[in-house]
Write a protein that binds this DNA or RNA. Structure first.
Lengths: 207, 207
DNA sequence: AACAAAAATTTCCTATTGGAAACTTTTGTG
DNA sequence: CACAAAAGTTTCCAATAGGAAATTTTTGTT
């Protein structure tokens, strides 16, 4: 959309970085071992699946060597794990063990010319899912300067009224209460209200 | 929840795996180079930041060597990129450039004893966000055998009726139409309808 | 507890990575 | 377009990863 919630809120902090490379632990070996064991595989079996030697696997698990990227790829493929997941931080999500309830109309407001965004679960940071309840004021596609593309994926559900969904590469579609859509955030997109009153939608973007 | 959508649908295909590891391209070198250039760094500067030799960086960028994991860590730290992102697949999300619209009550149904799940955007696989419209039939927490913990995070919005949200570590809370919640999927959780009719919620889980 | 079988680790060797310096290419300035 | 400076690549060697087989440890059975 020309105005996407995630464009307006600086919701998630960015990681700070030192200029010198003290490489953190990130127990790759331990993780690999846990995964292998959780699949109930012996080194021998894991070796067959990954194409890496038993000895190599053992050394990786015991952190005796730093596997090459090629080895990591084989590992990931053979044990059916995806690499991002394999490395994704033990600086785990701040949501761990938490819950946040947002009562109706009590989200964190953020108005823009064409939308009235209300961020839900605003107490929690570093969320994997960013939920907004949004009121669509625009009545005309021309009110949008140009649409924006951004990373991630989006889901939208019409809560009240009706809208026209404009998306790059596709024909505009009218959507009514209860209809929903899912699309690549990388495609330009925008919403226009077609109902008497302003339309309301739930907008969810992946981080 | 005792019954989580993601527990019941085998929604996303699991990657098939050959027993032999023909490792896919994944242009790591190109990516690294793009990132370096986007920061307007010369190899010399990147070398200083990462602690890797100019020559090593060059070879990595030109895919002449497969860096060790240690090297990758230094790279990531020095250039301020996070490793998951660095690797996240150019076998990119099947959502790329796509859009899927689900009309009201036309999701892919999946009934269970206590919930009536309807998966939205079921055409798209490998989604980062998994949206369900769910009818809550349970009237009593005792209908749940035991609650389940799983990876990822969840968002829930009450669409119709009212429910009690049970979550481990927290007191149960009654939620009404328009209320929403966000929580760690790793906490046990379950929903009970408290309205005359079955309650309806939108459930969204991160993949 | 003693033994055999299975699993994991270590050794030893080859292949590949990583770094210093030489070399080549590109950029930009008169 | 010649030249110098900067950027990038290649070479050569030392350090480390990866694989086959030997060795050790663990597991399970009597």
């Amino acid at each position: 959309m020309a105005e996407d919630p995630s464009q307006f809120f600086s919701v998630e902090e960015t990681e700070t970085l030192g200029t010198e490379s003290t490489v953190e632990p990130l127990q790759l070996g331990k993780r690999v071992k846990d995964i292998r064991l959780s699949h109930n595989l012996t080194l021998e079996e894991a070796s067959k699946r990954t194409g890496l030697a038993r000895s190599t696997l053992s050394k990786i698990e015991n952190e005796q060597i730093s596997p090459t990227f090629t080895a990591v790829q084989k590992l990931a493929k053979g044990l059916n794990i995806d690499i991002p997941q394999l490395f994704s931080s033990p600086k785990e999500s701040r949501t761990a063990g938490r819950r946040d309830i947002t009562r109706k109309n009590e989200g964190k407001p953020h108005p823009t010319p064409t939308y009235e965004h209300e961020m839900l679960a605003a107490q929690l940071s570093n969320k994997k899912i960013l939920p907004y309840k949004t009121t669509v004021r625009a009545r005309n596609f021309s009110e949008y300067p140009s649409w924006v593309r951004h990373d991630g994926e989006e889901f939208m559900l019409v809560l009240k009224g009706s809208v026209i969904l404009h998306t790059e590469f596709y024909e505009p579609v009218e959507m009514f209460e209860g209809d929903s859509t899912y699309y690549d955030g990388g495609m330009g997109h925008a919403l226009v209200s077609t109902s008497e009153e302003d339309a309301e939608v739930l907008w969810v973007t992946s981080s």
